[in-house]
Design a protein around this nucleic acid. Structure first.
Length: 206
DNA sequence: AAACGTCACAACCGCGTGGAG
DNA sequence: GCTCCACGCGGTTGTGACGTT
């Protein structure tokens, strides 16, 4: 991850970008727990985060919110996503409202990485050869025509899609180099913190 | 075992919209 | 009515993880 150390020390006044550290997450969680969300720009300043309000908002909505549900999109959810996408197209936030706990970003990513891929594959097998490369990518914007809702076969829709992630629906975040904090024991996940960890720490801080 | 390619996801960016002053 | 600001949305990019050769 850490792209560049962000040479933060020298230019602290600057806005930080890139992956969030656990410390930043904790600060944000704490601050919102005490003051509530909203007015993100001033929130970022008041909380002492060197992030834009936009970045804070995104982090909170997509990742830190307690009610956010991650991983394991169920077959039901997948069907719903496909139905709603057929109806509304790329209105991710609208679609997300019908999937409690899911974020527009997650749904968008999910669509692009899984479903769209299969649409493409389907297209290719349908129109072997004649297909124009240019159109392949338009699958996303062109609401996938009529095939969408029902046409997009259950082949994929009936099973959990990602067996690898099935084991932990819990979000993992990277810890900072923090001598005081002991990483979760064992496992190759030792470099990561779950949201549960974060929230319990947040509670302790209170 | 190493190199390479692909996948999945977090985060950023730009733009449009709505409200306050 | 106009301008500015904050917010929200959708598209895109960057990067680590994982799989394949």
């Amino acid at each position: 991850m850490d792209k560049k150390p962000c040479n933060s020390s020298s230019q602290d006044a600057e806005v930080r970008k890139g992956p969030w550290t656990m410390e930043e997450d904790l600060i944000l969680i704490n601050y919102i727990a005490n003051h509530g969300e909203g007015v993100w720009n001033s929130l970022a300043k008041s909380a002492g985060l060197k992030r834009t309000g936009k970045s804070c908002r995104l982090r909170w909505l997509n990742y830190l919110r307690p009610d956010v549900r991650r991983g394991n999109i169920t077959p039901e959810e997948q069907l719903l996503i496909m139905e709603l996408h057929a109806k509304w197209g790329n209105r991710w936030s609208k679609i997300a409202k019908h999937l409690p706990g899911r974020t527009d970003n997650e749904i968008k990513n999910y669509w692009r990485t899984r479903i769209q891929k299969h649409i493409k594959q389907g297209d290719q097998s349908n129109s072997q050869g004649q297909s124009s490369e240019g159109t392949a990518d338009q699958a996303s914007t062109s609401q996938m025509g009529s095939s969408s809702t029902t046409g997009l076969d259950p082949m994929e829709t009936t099973y959990p899609l990602c067996p690898t992630t099935a084991s932990y629906p819990v979000t993992l975040v990277q810890p900072p180099d923090h001598p005081n904090v002991v990483p979760p024991p064992d496992s190759n996940q030792e470099n990561y913190w779950s949201m549960e960890d974060l929230w319990s720490m947040q509670l302790l801080n209170e």
